[in-house]
Amino acid sequence: MPNITVVQGDITKQNVDAVVNAANNAMRGGGGVDGAIHRAGGPAVLADCVARFPDGLATGDAGWTTAGNMPAQWVIHTVGPNHAAGERDRSLLESCYRRVLEVADELGARTVAFPLISAGTYGWPRQDAIAAAVDTIAATPTQVETAILMAFDEDAYRQIRGVLRSRA
C-alpha cells in the first residue's frame, strides 16, 4: 500500500514521477485540472493525447502521455464519471484510481499526485470523492510508494487530512 498524503497546491508544480489528469472523454484538453495540466505541460501533452488516444478514452479508464514542460515525467489521464450529468456509478470513480495505479506500475512510477477525480466541474460530492480516493488507493495492490492527494484550497486540504487521519 502506498503512503497516502495530502498537499495543498498546484498539481502541475509537483516534483513526482506522474501527475494525474482528470480528463474528459475527448482527451483534447478542457477546464479545471485538465486545462491547467495542458497549459503547464505545453503542446507536447496535447500532441501525445492526439497520437495515443485518437478516439478518446472511456469513463473509468486511464492512459499516459508525456508531461511536457512540467517537473513530472508523465501525465496519467483518467476520465471520471460526470455526476452533474447523471453518471453516478461510484464503481466508475473507483476504477479511475485503480487504473491510474495500474498504469503507474506499467511505467515504473513510484510517486503519483492525484486530484480529487470528478469532484470539480463533474460535481461528485466532495466527501464521497475523498473517501473513494483514499479507500481505493489503499486497497489497490501497487508498486507506487507515495500517492499524494492534491487539495486546491484550504477546505479540501482539511477534509482530506481528516479522512486520512480517521483511516490511520
Score class of each variant (00 low, 15 high):
113 A>I: 11
43 P>A: 05
66 T>Y: 06
121 T>W: 05
40 A>D: 01
76 I>Y: 03
107 L>D: 14
79 V>Y: 00
121 T>M: 11
89 D>E: 14
83 H>L: 10
117 I>Y: 00
120 G>E: 09
80 G>R: 03
43 P>D: 12
36 A>W: 03
54 P>C: 05
42 G>H: 03
104 A>P: 08
107 L>W: 10
97 Y>R: 09
107 L>H: 13
75 V>M: 05
76 I>K: 02
133 A>G: 03
71 P>F: 11
76 I>Q: 03
41 G>L: 01
76 I>C: 05
125 P>N: 10
104 A>S: 10
57 L>D: 00
94 E>M: 13
73 Q>M: 10
57 L>G: 01
105 D>E: 12
42 G>M: 02
64 W>H: 11
122 Y>M: 06
92 L>Y: 10
36 A>D: 03
121 T>E: 13
115 P>F: 01
124 W>K: 03
53 F>A: 04
103 V>F: 12
57 L>I: 06
53 F>K: 02
113 A>V: 12
35 G>W: 03
91 S>Y: 12
89 D>T: 10
65 T>S: 09
77 H>E: 09
114 F>W: 07
103 V>P: 06
127 Q>E: 15
120 G>I: 05
119 A>G: 09
49 C>T: 01
56 G>V: 01
60 G>Y: 03
59 T>Q: 02
120 G>L: 07
92 L>P: 03
87 E>H: 14
39 R>S: 06
125 P>A: 08
115 P>S: 10
42 G>N: 04
61 D>P: 00
101 L>W: 09
85 A>D: 15
75 V>Y: 05
94 E>D: 15
97 Y>G: 08
61 D>T: 11
105 D>R: 10
95 S>I: 14
70 M>Q: 05
55 D>F: 01
100 V>Y: 04
60 G>E: 01
123 G>D: 12
104 A>Q: 08
91 S>R: 15
92 L>V: 10
37 I>P: 00
98 R>S: 13
67 A>P: 03
47 A>W: 01
132 A>M: 05
131 A>P: 04
37 I>G: 00
35 G>P: 07
113 A>Q: 09
49 C>K: 00
114 F>M: 07
106 E>I: 07
77 H>R: 07
91 S>A: 15
107 L>Y: 11
112 V>S: 04
37 I>W: 02
69 N>Q: 15
36 A>N: 06
84 A>W: 14
122 Y>W: 10
85 A>F: 14
135 D>E: 15
65 T>L: 08
121 T>Y: 06
56 G>H: 04
59 T>D: 04
127 Q>R: 14
132 A>E: 02
86 G>T: 13
89 D>Y: 09
76 I>P: 01
